[in-house]
């Protein structure tokens, strides 16, 4: 069993393995490993960056959502307030209009009553005067022209009083 080599054979192995190792080390260290480790670093950097970017985007999106939510709530409150205000305004306007209409109707009624009253009074006054004339004429016709001026006046007075009492009832 020739595990331990004769020195002459061994020297070939030392030279070949040493030179091939050194050449391989030189070439790999200069041309092969740097681009590979650079790519590894670049990739991890890219992954880290995009993770950070997506995290920032997520936070921004959440912030916007929150903002929109509060805006929505505010808008809803605003709308409710506007509706409430409108309702109040219309309520007061309705009340005002109704009060005014009532007032107007009342005034109209009063005026009409006053008019009627005045008409009635005028009519009564006219009636009194025409009744006096008519009764003089009728009396004159009935008793002729016998009545003295004194009696005449007395008669008219009594009659007018009677008619006036009638009117007062």
């Amino acid at each position: 069993m020739e595990v331990i080599l004769p020195a002459k054979t061994m020297i070939y192995e030392v030279i070949v393995s040493l030179v091939s190792f050194l050449v391989l080390f030189g070439v790999l260290a200069k041309f092969a490993f740097p681009p590979i480790t650079k790519m590894l670093d670049k990739r991890s950097e890219t992954i880290r960056e995009s993770l950070e970017a997506s995290e920032a985007t997520r936070i921004e999106a959440e912030r916007l959502l929150e903002e929109y939510k509060t805006q929505m709530i505010e808008a809803r409150h605003e709308a409710a307030k506007v509706i409430e205000q409108g309702r109040k305004i219309s309520e007061t306007m309705k009340n005002e209009i109704m009060a005014k209409a009532n007032e107007d109707a009342q005034a109209l009624l009063v005026k009409a009553r006053e008019g009627i009253e005045a008409e009635k009074k005028a009519a009564i006054a006219e009636l009194q005067s025409s009744v006096a004339d008519l009764s003089v004429a009728v009396a004159g016709k009935l008793i002729g022209e016998t009545l003295s001026a004194k009696d005449h006046a007395k008669l008219i007075e009594r009659y007018v009083a009677e008619v006036g009492a009638l009117n007062e009832n």
Binding site: F31, P35, I36, M39, R43
Partner: peptide
């Protein structure tokens, strides 16, 4: 080893 690494180091891409 030499060929493997020289070829591999020329065929790197962002998406592995």
């Amino acid at each position: 080893t030499l060929v493997f690494f020289l070829v591999a180091s020329r065929r790197l891409s962002m998406v592995p």
